[in-house]
């Protein structure tokens, strides 16, 4: 009996750890899947409102079952392999995009203790996993041997390289202020009220709101959203990197895109908008993070259905001639202020 108790004492923490692991994985998968499904619904509804339509309404109340119907349709469709493709890479690419999108959620804290794996380098981990996403798009585009895909992938690379630089410069200047890469600590520093949020920390750097704007624009570009959706420009490139994909291959690319949008918006909320802190310092909790997160996503959708697509040169010029110089100046000013005070 005693030995059995000892055994239990020994095994319980490990079993709990394994159980926690499984619960975390299931939660992340469910969160990403549900978000992708219902953000499409939200996007269609918002697009409808903006264009004076009502959007999907036939399937279920307010069209709420539409994502389910879309999912069933995508999953039951034949997995069609076109002639002349590179089979292995063609099948691997969508999985790569989806897996890296899932991996990003591992270190994102949604509230006090609501994180799958807290890492001191959480922010770095997210950037690392997100950077693989481009490789997935590139491999998929190459494997499908389609000229539209090729043009799109060339655009994806130049766009991502161009916008990663101002994004990382802005993050570097933010890190000088916070002094940590741990997302939980970054949120904890902003507790109190909205005047403590990084976006309004004017004493650390007077350019903080500008840094926030740059980060927001870069997120739009990195997730290939309008006005920077040149990679997927329907009117000229059919569907960009995933022109040759059907059924769930296309579904995975699509889910990956929405998952990345959620990752980007969550990062903005955590880095600049105080994460799960309340604007007035009362009742902090995950609900505040979700509120900020979905407000940002709705803004992104609002921008998509309001502004037209830029030209490719406009896109590159904006990054290299406007955003990078401002980000560099921001970095210098922040560094000087951190050194002086």
């Amino acid at each position: 009996m005693l030995s059995y108790l000892n055994y239990l004492n020994d095994t319980m923490p490990c079993l709990m750890a394994i159980l926690r692991l499984i619960v975390c994985i299931v939660c992340i998968l469910a969160f990403v899947g549900l978000n992708a499904a219902y953000l499409v619904w939200l996007e269609r509804k918002l697009a409808g409102r903006i264009q004076r339509r009502i959007g999907p309404k036939e399937v279920g109340p307010f069209g709420l079952l539409q994502p389910l119907a879309d999912g069933i349709k995508l999953m039951t469709k034949q997995l069609f392999l076109p002639d002349g493709i590179d089979r292995i890479l063609y099948l691997l690419a969508p999985m790569l995009v989806m897996t890296t999108a899932f991996m990003c959620f591992v270190t994102i804290p949604f509230g006090e203790g609501l994180v799958a794996r807290e890492l001191d380098l959480g922010l770095l981990a997210i950037f690392a996993f997100a950077s693989i996403n481009v490789l997935g798009l590139l491999l998929g585009a190459w494997a499908s041997r389609n000229k539209y895909s090729m043009i799109s992938s060339a655009r994806v690379v130049s766009q991502n390289v161009a916008y990663e630089i101002p994004m990382l410069l802005v993050v570097a200047s933010l890190l000088m202020v916070t002094g940590t890469l741990n997302l939980h600590d970054i949120v904890a520093e902003q507790a109190g009220g909205f005047w403590n949020w990084n976006v309004l920390r004017l004493n650390a750097s007077p350019l903080m709101p500008v840094a926030f704007l740059i980060f927001f624009v870069c997120t739009l570009a990195e997730t290939n959203r309008t006005p920077f959706d040149l990679a997927e420009a329907e009117s000229e490139l059919v569907a960009g990197s995933f022109t040759e994909y059907g059924s769930m291959g296309f579904g995975l690319f699509f889910m990956g895109e929405y998952a990345n949008m959620v990752v980007g918006s969550t990062l903005i909320s955590i880095l600049f908008l105080g994460g799960w802190n309340c604007p007035f310092g009362i009742f902090p909790g995950p609900h505040w993070l979700f509120l900020k997160l979905y407000a940002l996503i709705s803004t992104v959708m609002w921008i998509r259905w309001t502004f037209p697509r830029t030209t490719f040169y406009g896109l590159l010029n904006l990054s290299w001639k406007v955003l990078i110089p401002i980000a560099l100046v921001n970095l210098l000013i922040t560094g000087a202020l951190v050194k002086v005070f």
Partner: peptide
């Protein structure tokens, strides 16, 4: 872990992507 993430960020996210791009060109 720092080296781990830097390895992924730089070698996979930057170098491999650049290599694929060069092959495409």
């Amino acid at each position: 872990p720092f080296l781990t993430f830097m390895q992924v960020l730089i070698y996979i996210g930057a170098i491999c992507v650049t290599l694929v791009f060069a092959v495409m060109l």
